[in-house]
Structure formats: structure tokens, C-alpha cells
Simulated assay, not measured.
Amino acid sequence: MDSRITRYCFLLLFGFAETILFFSAAIQFIWMLIRGKRNEHIAEFGTDLGNWLAAVARFQSGASEELPFPWEKWKQH
């Protein structure tokens, strides 16, 4: 696949993932208000998504040629 097309696809995915991260953070905030402690599953998801966003940012900026997920295995913390 052409590198430019791949980078454009990740540009779209990056925007979508940021929206998902925003809603995850909002849900975590509400969870913490109600329960008084964080939800471990949401926290782990946020960490993994943040790592993926960092990998996408490196690829999009040209700092790395390593394709992030779904072309590579999902890297968990």
C-alpha cells in the first residue's frame, strides 16, 4: 500500500481514537466520582490506547516507518 494512503488512513484513525480516549476519560472521571477509586480496566485501556496513539504519531510525523496496529501486533503495557 502506498505510504501516503497509509498515513492518511492513520490520520483518520487517530482522530477517532482521540474521541474514544476522551469518552474513556470522561467515564473514568464519573466512575471515580461515584466509586471513589479508579476502574482498572478503563485505566489499562487508556494506557494501551495512549501507547498506540504515540506509535501512530511517530509514524505520521515520519519519525518511524514502523506501522502501528493493525499492521503490527497490539502492544500492551
Rank of each mutant, 00 (worst) to 15 (best):
residue 3 S to V: 10
residue 4 R to A: 10
residue 5 I to E: 10
residue 6 T to I: 15
residue 6 T to M: 12
residue 7 R to P: 09
residue 8 Y to V: 14
residue 8 Y to R: 13
residue 9 C to I: 12
residue 9 C to S: 10
residue 10 F to A: 03
residue 10 F to G: 01
residue 10 F to K: 00
residue 12 L to P: 10
residue 14 F to M: 11
residue 14 F to S: 04
residue 14 F to C: 05
residue 16 F to H: 05
residue 16 F to E: 09
residue 18 E to V: 05
residue 18 E to Q: 11
residue 18 E to H: 03
residue 19 T to E: 11
residue 22 F to Y: 15
residue 24 S to Y: 02
residue 25 A to N: 13
residue 27 I to T: 13
residue 30 I to E: 07
residue 31 W to E: 00
residue 31 W to Q: 00
residue 32 M to C: 12
residue 33 L to T: 02
residue 34 I to D: 03
residue 34 I to H: 11
residue 35 R to S: 10
residue 35 R to F: 02
residue 36 G to Q: 07
residue 37 K to E: 12
residue 39 N to G: 13
residue 40 E to W: 09
residue 40 E to Q: 14
residue 41 H to T: 15
residue 41 H to D: 13
residue 42 I to L: 15
residue 42 I to E: 07
residue 43 A to V: 11
residue 43 A to D: 15
residue 43 A to N: 09
residue 45 F to N: 06
residue 46 G to L: 01
residue 46 G to H: 00
residue 47 T to Y: 02
residue 47 T to E: 06
residue 47 T to I: 09
residue 47 T to N: 09
residue 48 D to A: 03
residue 48 D to N: 13
residue 49 L to H: 02
residue 50 G to V: 03
residue 50 G to C: 07
residue 51 N to D: 15
residue 52 W to N: 14
residue 54 A to H: 02
residue 56 V to R: 06
residue 56 V to G: 03
residue 56 V to E: 04
residue 59 F to I: 01
residue 60 Q to M: 09
residue 60 Q to W: 01
residue 61 S to G: 06
residue 62 G to K: 01
residue 62 G to Y: 05
residue 65 E to A: 13
residue 66 E to C: 12
residue 68 P to H: 05
residue 68 P to S: 06
residue 68 P to I: 05
residue 69 F to P: 09
residue 69 F to W: 15
residue 70 P to N: 13
residue 71 W to M: 15
residue 71 W to C: 12
residue 74 W to A: 11
residue 74 W to Y: 12
residue 76 Q to C: 01
residue 77 H to R: 11
